[in-house]
Amino acid sequence: MKKYKTLSDNELFILVKECDHSAYLELYNRYHDCLFKFIRKYLKSSELSKDICQNVFLKIWEQRAQTDIIEFGAYIFTVAKRMSFDFLKRASVEEKVMERLLQSYHPSLNIVEENQEFLDYMNFIENVLAAMPEQTRIVFKLCRQQYKSYDEAAKILGISTHTIKKHMVRSMKILKDATKGGLGIPLFLLIAFIGNKP
């Protein structure tokens, strides 16, 4: 393994194209941590960032034979950015993806984040939640911040699961509409703008 550490990224990728697992592992070790941090700037979620990061490396391996790279570092960050944006774009139109993105938002987490734009974004979400009808806000917090299932939330509040679903659909619509109306851009573009820093 020692010899791989002396090779350049591009030299390693040439070996990866020849199915050299050790060369692939060396590239993984070189880029994983910084790539994860880069993706987290866009997604603001460690869990989602881990998933996207793994998908980037998986794509590198699966498409190695068809990929010609001039500069590996530039290539892998381009792939990571594209995958992050694709996820955020899907989140703007697909309810399940949006729910997964919102589920990563949890005000009680001890997130070390000095980025003022990020803090402004979180404050924006807090204000939108505060403006929701009380029952919708309670349902949202139970399901998305306390991770209760719809059935569990229904039992706690003494209402039907169908009513819980209606409140969740309403909360999603309120969040999406508030982002477009209050900020003039879709939610995924807002998050991309916040994270769009080198």
Rank of each mutant, 00 (worst) to 15 (best):
R100E: 12
V56I: 13
I39S: 00
L58V: 09
K41L: 12
E71I: 11
M122I: 11
T6E: 15
E62M: 14
F124C: 07
T78P: 01
M98H: 09
K50H: 11
E126C: 05
I138V: 14
N127W: 05
E71V: 12
C143A: 11
S149P: 06
K50N: 08
K141V: 05
E71T: 08
N196T: 09
G184T: 08
S104I: 05
R30Q: 10
N196P: 01
A178R: 01
L119H: 07
S160T: 15
N196F: 12
Q116M: 09
F87D: 01
H167G: 02
S49L: 03
L109I: 08
C143V: 09
S49T: 04
E126Y: 08
E18L: 13
K166P: 01
E26K: 03
M168E: 01
R144I: 07
D68Q: 12
K3N: 14
K165R: 15
D151T: 10
L187M: 14
E94K: 13
Q63D: 11
N55E: 15
P107T: 07
S49R: 00
D86G: 06
I60E: 00
S171V: 03
L109F: 06
I70K: 14
R82S: 12
M98V: 10
I14K: 15
M1E: 11
S149W: 10
I174L: 03
L12Q: 03
I194V: 15
N110L: 09
K59H: 12
L58A: 07
I111W: 00
E134Q: 08
E126T: 06
V139Y: 03
V128N: 03
I76M: 02
G181F: 10
R170V: 07
V97S: 05
P198Q: 13
L119Y: 04
L119T: 07
T161H: 04
E11K: 15
P107L: 07
K180F: 06
L43F: 04
R90Y: 04
D9I: 13
K165Y: 07
S108Y: 07
L88V: 09
Y121P: 00
L183W: 10
Y42S: 04
K3E: 15
L12S: 01
F36R: 02
L12M: 11
V97I: 13
S46D: 09
N29Y: 14
E117Q: 13
D9M: 13
